[in-house]
């Protein structure tokens, strides 16, 4: 299980990286390498050139302003998990990213790499869709901004050109004290989820839910917004009936059966995860703490 031969380019500028991608077929970007290297060791893929972007330090880092959170594509999952500034405005990240793989893989794995790998059960694509993130991809003609819904084009298929590099992920933070919940069921700690549910909730002063986002990972070929579940909650106070309806409507999502579970099973797991995530998101003592 040794990787096949390839050429290696350690890019020292973004421009150099893009240019190398433009001029070579079958070139691949080496970011954290936590999926790519395994696939190469297994000889599932045979890139001609690996463009290592680990030296592009300008692509790493988290910046937070009242309107915008920007996470550089080369930000390590571990940095996202432990970022205090991110935890203050988007505490769901720490909770979800803690469940990504294991410590050793989070130390190397990046948010950009995870988004481009686009495993439907992975936590970061699920969060990206939850937050309606904007993906910034840079190609020969400079950067362009892609709505995450357009970025996710199909099973493990990101909507970028072969000579584009994802350079950052941006989203608007929800208001301080928002409710959040993230639960997933995996066979073992660190495994890909059979189903995951990510929830964000904003309430008005009278506790009415004004804004809600639900994103389900693992169940289908791509992460999915649970639109009808969101509709069930909006304008309610998150009462038992509204929650039950949102959970019930998990049946409207797309399901894909695989080795770890059929459709009926994934639906049951999805419902349980959503129930748990909603319970967390509606727990005002918890969101209060996040605001503090």
């Amino acid at each position: 299980m040794k990787p096949p031969p390839f050429e290696y380019v350690r890019a020292s500028t973004l421009k150099e990286a893009i240019s190398t991608l433009s001029h070579n077929e079958d070139a691949r970007i080496l970011a954290g390498g936590q999926s790519l290297m395994a696939m190469m060791n297994l000889r599932y893929i045979f890139p001609s050139i690996l463009v290592d972007i680990n030296e592009l330090h300008e692509l790493a880092g988290i910046s937070v302003s009242p309107e915008r959170v920007r996470i550089g594509a080369m930000t390590r999952q571990r940095a996202i998990e432990t970022s205090q500034t991110l935890a203050e405005v988007a505490p769901i990240f720490a909770e979800a990213v803690h469940l990504v793989g294991h410590r050793q893989t989070r130390n190397r794995g990046t948010i950009g790499g995870s988004l481009c790998h686009l495993d439907p059960a992975a936590e970061l694509p699920t969060l990206a869709l939850l937050y309606d993130c904007t993906i910034e991809a840079t190609g020969p003609n400079g950067p362009r901004r892609i709505a995450v819904a357009d970025f996710i084009t199909g099973y493990m298929t990101p909507g970028i050109a072969p000579d584009e590099i994802v350079t950052a992920v941006e989203f608007g933070p929800w208001k301080p004290g928002h409710g959040y919940g993230f639960h997933e069921f995996a066979r073992r700690h660190g495994d890909f989820a059979i189903a995951s549910a990510a929830v964000l909730i904003e309430r008005a002063a009278d506790r009415t839910i004004e804004r809600v986002a639900i994103c389900m990972g693992g169940v289908g070929s791509v992460p999915q917004r649970h639109v009808s579940g969101e509709a069930a909650l909006i304008g309610t106070k998150g009462d038992v009936a509204a929650v039950a309806l949102a959970v019930e409507r998990c049946a409207q999502l797309d399901y894909v059966a695989d080795f770890h579970g059929g459709e009926e099973y994934r639906l049951s797991v999805a419902r349980t995860m959503l129930r748990r995530s909603l319970a967390d998101a509606l727990d005002e003592t918890r969101s209060g703490k996040a605001a503090a």
């Binding site: 066979r187 073992r188 700690h189 660190g190 495994d191 890909f192 080795f259």
Partner: peptide, 11 residues
């Protein structure tokens, strides 16, 4: 080892 599940310390 992603498909064949060995027991880890957390189980």
């Amino acid at each position: 080892f992603q498909e064949y599940l060995m027991v880890t310390a957390t189980e």
